[in-house]
Design a protein around this nucleic acid. Structure first.
Lengths: 127, 127
DNA sequence: AATATATATATGTCTATTCGAATAAATTGA
DNA sequence: TCAATTTATTCGAATAGACATATATATATT
């Protein structure tokens, strides 16, 4: 269902993207981990699958996320065409979240979630 | 009506603070100008006074703004106790906004709005 | 083709948010 | 105390957002 060329995030769209606790948790996670599949996000954050799917769709539509299918799994990552200011703003926000709940625990849980056979989590380096 | 000791902005509160176009415009302006009174904000952004007042109340309540009364005028500024990550995130966002409408025009209009007698606008230095 | 798995969407409902209009409150000066 | 000015709050209506449940789609395997 890959949305190939999303509109760039406008400031309003960016702000609305973060304006839901579940979506903020997704975005914060994806500042730390290169990509995550829907089942990992669902299990980590602990929401029902349709709810996760809905919020991911919102983030894709607004231009914040890119997705990639690999077999049955669909992996999401921050959209590489995201404007620099958007990425910087999100990173700054994430830096404040990582010591707090539920973000801290979310990140710790990622490694324990279900994963496609032989799939390897790629962490992003935080300086 | 000065809210003296607001709770610190949680990530969720911070995200919700920005999740309305009017509130985002207020916040972006206040990354560039030290403080603004309600009438300046109302006139610059071009909304009805009760609407401005309501959004300012939301921002104060969430901990993003501080206010100070001087006679009839009430001046608002970014709350000085705002966490560093919040401020950094907001500044990054603002840096992306300043070239865009309506933020660009908002800033240009500030100087032309009504001002208390002899009041002088203090711009913040952007590096 | 039939089944299983992962993800997406549709539907109806409920709640939260926003708005304009009207009104109230606070401060100043006459 | 009265009037003028600035800001805040209340109210009801309209809108948008989020939710759970049920169902659909897409891919892989048998």
């Amino acid at each position: 269902m890959c949305t190939d060329t999303p509109n760039l995030l406008s400031p309003d769209d960016f702000a609305l993207s973060m304006a839901d606790p579940t979506r903020l948790r997704i975005l914060v996670l994806l500042t730390q981990v290169e990509e995550l599949c829907v089942c990992q996000l669902t299990e980590t954050i602990g929401v029902l699958q349709p709810k996760m799917s809905r919020h991911l769709a919102i983030l894709r539509k607004k231009g914040g996320l890119m997705d990639r299918r690999e077999g049955l799994w669909i992996f999401h990552r921050l959209h590489p065409d995201m404007p620099a200011w958007t990425y910087n703003s999100l990173r700054a926000l994430a830096s404040g979240c990582l010591n707090l709940q539920p973000y801290k625990t979310d990140l710790a849980k990622i490694a324990d979630t279900c994963l496609p056979e032989g799939y390897r989590i790629k962490m992003l380096n935080e300086e």
